[in-house]
């Protein structure tokens, strides 16, 4: 593994039951940069992130983080690794029985022995970073979708991790808030030197934040490289994605009739 690589995935294969989701994919994610994962809905991006934090075990393949294969780690070693990684889930996944402040404080309380007053200050700082000051005592059910996402980001950053995963951070946010989030991601990379992996569909955001891009298609890696190479690519699928064109119609009207008739 090269020194400037944070995460390296080799020949990763994964299944849900008998269904193959990721089919033998390999790529590496550079350290201290922002990597964006692109790909059509249902192509396995969230599944990939869950592998990168050890929630799912691959059918075969290796995932190296800091030169250690997390696919082979036991639970204790994995938990040590997870303290250095923060993740925002696609649905935010805040604990509904806890307030926003308690959610953000949870990893700090579990993994450090800091005084309550110190924890409170840390929590307020994280919430301020995502513009949620004043909502400390709200429960997740009392927040909007975008606010939950931002609270989830604050929780992911609670322990100042080395690596951050964001699963569609700006989906469902207004353009202004989404742009604010992009700025935050840039700041985290530049100021805190974090390695950031973002799954997103928002093209403006991709051009703002991405240093490196990985594009998945039907369980395979279609593209992996710097952003400039992606925009220069003339692969038809990549062009369609970047120009927001629909899949080309492959069926003629008669076939279409057959499909909707269920034949």
């Amino acid at each position: 593994m090269k020194a400037d690589t944070a995460i390296e995935v080799r020949n990763l294969v994964t299944h849900y039951g008998d269904r193959a989701i990721l089919k033998d994919i390999s790529f590496s994610i550079p350290k201290g940069k922002t990597t964006v994962i692109l790909g059509g809905s249902g192509c396995g991006k969230s599944t990939l992130l869950k592998h990168l934090i050890g929630l799912l075990k691959p059918t075969s393949g290796n995932i190296f983080i800091n030169d250690r294969d997390i696919a082979l780690m036991d639970e204790t070693a994995l938990n040590d690794m997870r303290k250095k990684i923060g993740i925002l889930f696609q649905g935010a996944a805040l604990l509904n029985s806890l307030t926003i402040a308690e959610n953000v404080a949870l990893p700090i309380r579990e993994h450090t022995k800091l005084e309550k007053s110190t924890v409170d200050i840390m929590v307020r700082m994280k919430l301020d970073l995502v513009n949620l000051s004043g909502f400390e005592h709200f429960y997740p059910a009392q927040l909007s979708g975008g606010m939950k996402k931002r609270a989830g980001i604050a929780r992911a950053m609670a322990l100042d991790p080395e690596i951050l995963y964001f699963d569609e951070p700006s989906a469902g946010l207004d353009p202004v808030t989404a742009a604010g989030l992009d700025e935050l991601i840039i700041k985290l990379r530049d100021v805190f030197r974090m390695t950031i992996v973002v799954v997103t569909h928002e093209l403006p955001s991709v051009f703002m934040i991405a240093d490196h891009v990985i594009m998945l298609d039907a369980g395979n890696v279609l593209f992996s490289g710097p952003l400039a190479e992606l925009t220069a690519s003339d692969h038809p699928k990549i062009r369609r994605f970047l120009e927001r064109k629909a899949e080309e119609e492959s069926e003629n009207p008669e076939d279409y009739l057959k499909i909707i008739a269920g034949e």
Binding site: A93, N96, P107
Partner: peptide, 21 residues
Amino acid sequence: AEIGSMKAAEEIDALTSMGIN
């Protein structure tokens, strides 16, 4: 009901991802 709805909302995954069993 509590554990089941936490499972459905990925809250259990979130706990695990924070290194909390």
